[in-house]
Amino acid sequence: MIDLDRVENVLVRAPNWLGDVVMATPALRTLRSRCPNARIVVWVRAGLEPVLAGSLDIDEVRTLPKGDAPWRELSRSVRQVHKAGPYDLGLCLPDSFSSAILMRFAGGRPLVGYANAARKLLLDHPVPVEVSGAEGRRAPREDRIQGLLTSLGMPSHDFAPRLETTTVEEEKVEDLLGGKGHRETWIGLAPGAAYGPSKCWPADRYAALGDALANQGARIFILGAPGERDLCSAVSQQMTLPCMDLSGQLDLGAFKALIRRLDLMICNDSGARHLAVGLQVPALVFFGPTDVWRTRRNLENVSVLEKKEVSCRPCYKRNCPTDHRCLLDLTVAQALEEARARLATGWSDPKGLYEEAE
C-alpha cells in the first residue's frame, strides 16, 4: 500500500476529452484534500489546459501534444515532465496502453491505473476494471476516476464537478461584450460536437429554437470552436431574430467565462454540457448516439432530451450510417418546452454543494 502521508509530488495524466477532464475535477479535489501539502502536476492534452485554470486543487499544468503530433514533440513533452519530477505517485486516468507507457517514461511512479488487458504489466498498482448495473455496463466516468483514489485509501462521495475562471478569462469576455450588463435572459446555443456529426441536433432546429426563445425576450449567443464556425454560421443565418455568433472568437478560457454568465446552455452531448455543469449553469442536452448511463451523475440541473425507442442507440458512431432518427425525432416544440421548464426552475442545489461559492 502506498503511504499517502509521505507523498510530496503527484503526476496526474488527465483524460483526453474536454468533458472527461471536467469530470475528473472531483477526484482532483479528493486528492488535494488527502494530500494538502503535495505538489500536484496535471499532464493534459494541449488545448485543454484552460479547463483547469484557476483551480486551487492543482499546482501546475503540463501539456501533452495531440495524438497526431510528431514524435519529436511528444518526446520533448515527456522529457520536460520527467525533469519536473521526481514524483512519489502517478495517476493514469486514461485507459489506453500508450498513456501508461508515457507515464512510465515521465517518471510517474508508483503508477496507478485500471488494469486493461496487457496494460496491467505497466502499472505498479493495477486496479481491476469495475462494471455497474445488471447489463455489465461501465460505471459513470466520475465513479471510475474516483475508484482509482478509493483503491489507494482515498474514498469520497463528492462527485460534483467544479470549475473556476480567472481574472484574465473574465476580462476577455467583458472586452468582447463591451461591458454590456446582464439584464435579460442569456441563452447559449452550442450546435457542435468534437466527437462527430452523429451527436449534433440539426442546425435548422437550433435556429428555430433560438428564434422562439429570442421572441420571448432572451438574448441568444451562438457558441462553438474555430472548427465549428460554418455550423454556427448556419444556425445564426437561419435565425430571423438577432443573435450574437461568437464561434471561433473565444479561446477555451473565455468560453468558460461566457458560459458562467448564461442562464441556460443548450447543446449536444459535448464538452459544452460538462463546462456548464462545472460552472453551475443549467443545461438542456440532446442525446443521440450516446448513452446517458455513462455520464448519469450530476444531472440535477440538466434536462435530457432523448429518443429511447430507437433500436440502434447507443451506437457511439461518429457518423450515422442510417437515418439519424435518434436526434431527428426530437422536435423544436419538445426542446422549447424543456427550455422553458429549465429556465423556470433555474439552478437547483439540493445538497448545498455550492453555498460557499454563492
Rank of each mutant, 00 (worst) to 15 (best):
S156R: 03
H157D: 14
D158P: 06
F159V: 05
F159C: 02
F159Q: 02
R162K: 14
R162H: 14
T166S: 11
T167W: 07
V168H: 11
E169L: 04
E169C: 06
K172C: 12
V173A: 06
E174Y: 12
D175G: 10
D175H: 11
D175C: 10
L177Y: 06
G179C: 08
G181R: 08
G181F: 04
R183C: 07
E184T: 15
I187T: 06
I187W: 00
L189H: 11
G192S: 15
A194E: 15
Y195R: 03
S198F: 09
S198D: 07
K199Y: 02
P202T: 00
D204W: 07
Y206R: 06
A207S: 13
A207V: 04
A207D: 05
A208N: 07
G210F: 10
G210N: 13
D211R: 13
N215M: 12
N215G: 15
G217I: 13
R219L: 08
R219I: 10
I220E: 02
I222S: 01
P226G: 03
E228N: 00
D230C: 09
L231E: 00
C232R: 00
S233M: 11
S233H: 13
Q237P: 05
Q238D: 14
M239G: 00
L241K: 06
L241M: 06
L241F: 01
P242M: 08
P242I: 06
C243W: 02
C243E: 10
L246R: 08
Q249P: 10
L250P: 14
D251T: 02
L252T: 10
L252K: 09
L252Q: 12
K256S: 01
R260N: 05
R261S: 01
D263H: 06
L264N: 02
M265R: 06
